[in-house]
Amino acid sequence: MLRFVKFTFLILAALLLQVTLFPAYLRDPFKPNLLVILVAYLGLRQQSPMGGVVVFLLGLLQDCFSGLYLGLNAFTYLVTYIILRQIADRLYTDSRYLMILVVVLATFGNGLLQLPLLLLFSAAPGVYAALLPALLPQALVNALATSVLLAFTHRGGTVEQK
C-alpha cells in the first residue's frame, strides 16, 4: 500500500513539474519528459503484472495535459513498455548507464511512434517539422534528468543501507 502511495505521489509530482514548473524555467525543446523516464524504469526494473495498466494510465494522464489527442501517449507508452519488458530479461538492468541509454532510446521511440499516428489520424500534417527537431534535445535532457535522479536514488539507497 505504501509503495502504491509513493508511486502515485511520484507520478503526480513528475506530471506537475512537467506542466507547471519546467515551462516556467526551461525553453522548448529542453524540457525533460519525466513520464518517459518512469515508463523506461517500469519496463526495465519493475516486472509487475500491473505495469502495463500503470503505463497506459501514465500516458492518459500525459494526454490530458499535452496535445489534443487523448490516447496518443497512452498508446506509445504502452508499446514502449511492452518492448522493454520483452528485452529486459536479457539485459543487465541494474546498470545506471543502461538505464540512461534506454531512456534516450525510449524518448526517440516514443516520438517516432507518435509521428505516423499524428500524420495519419490528426489534422496536423506539418507536425513532423516540430516533432523531429525536438527529439534529440529532449532525449539528451531526459538522459541528464535520469542521471540526476539515479544519483539521488543511489545516494538514498546507500544511506538506507547504513
Binding site: 506530471l15 512537467q18 506542466v19 507547471t20 515551462p23 522548448d28 525543446p29 524540457k31 519528459n33 513520464l35 500525459q62 495535459f65 499535452s66 496535445g67 489534443l68 501517449n73 516520438g111 507518435q114 507536425v127 516540430a130 516533432l131 525536438a134 534535445p137 529532449q138
Partner: peptide, 14 residues
C-alpha cells in the same frame, strides 16, 4: 495561465 504543454511538439496551455 496555469500550465503549459508537456511535449515540445504540441502548443497548448492550461
Amino acid at each position: 495561465v496555469i500550465g503549459e504543454d508537456g511535449a515540445p511538439w504540441f502548443k497548448t496551455i492550461t
